[in-house]
């Protein structure tokens, strides 16, 4: 159980790292949203799943199960809310007239 939890958490940290690199290196608002929206969602999901499993490491008691259930409900909340927030920001950028980045001479 502990091994799986640690593996999940390392995977989550990996996705957070890639999302941060994308956020820093991508050229404009939309591509950064692309990195942050997906990478952060998956990273947080994997981290929380790992924490929920790790919490059950000492054996299944009712209290530990309840805490794990709360962690899982946070994961579900993030899974629904984070892409919606990214969508809202992207839509606001489109409505405000932000042009997508292109290579020099390329068509938008």
């Amino acid at each position: 159980m502990s091994t799986v939890a640690i593996f999940l958490m390392i995977a989550g940290v990996f996705f957070f790292t890639t999302a941060t690199i994308g956020l820093l290196r991508f050229p404009d608002c939309y591509t950064r949203m692309h990195a942050a929206g997906k990478g952060d969602t998956l990273g947080a999901l994997l981290l929380l799943l790992g924490l929920a499993l790790y919490n059950l490491n000492d054996g299944f008691s009712l209290a530990a199960l309840l805490v794990s259930l709360k962690i899982l409900s946070i994961a579900v909340f993030i899974f629904v809310a984070n892409p919606t927030a990214s969508h809202a920001i992207a839509k606001a950028a489109i409505d405000a007239g932000v042009r997508p980045w292109t290579r020099k001479g390329g068509k938008p």
Binding site: F77, V80, A81, T84, H87, A88, K91
Partner: peptide, 12 residues
């Protein structure tokens, strides 16, 4: 008006 945002808001 945006159907995605409104639906998720109604759900959450």
């Amino acid at each position: 008006e945006d159907i995605i945002i409104q639906t998720v808001t109604r759900l959450l």
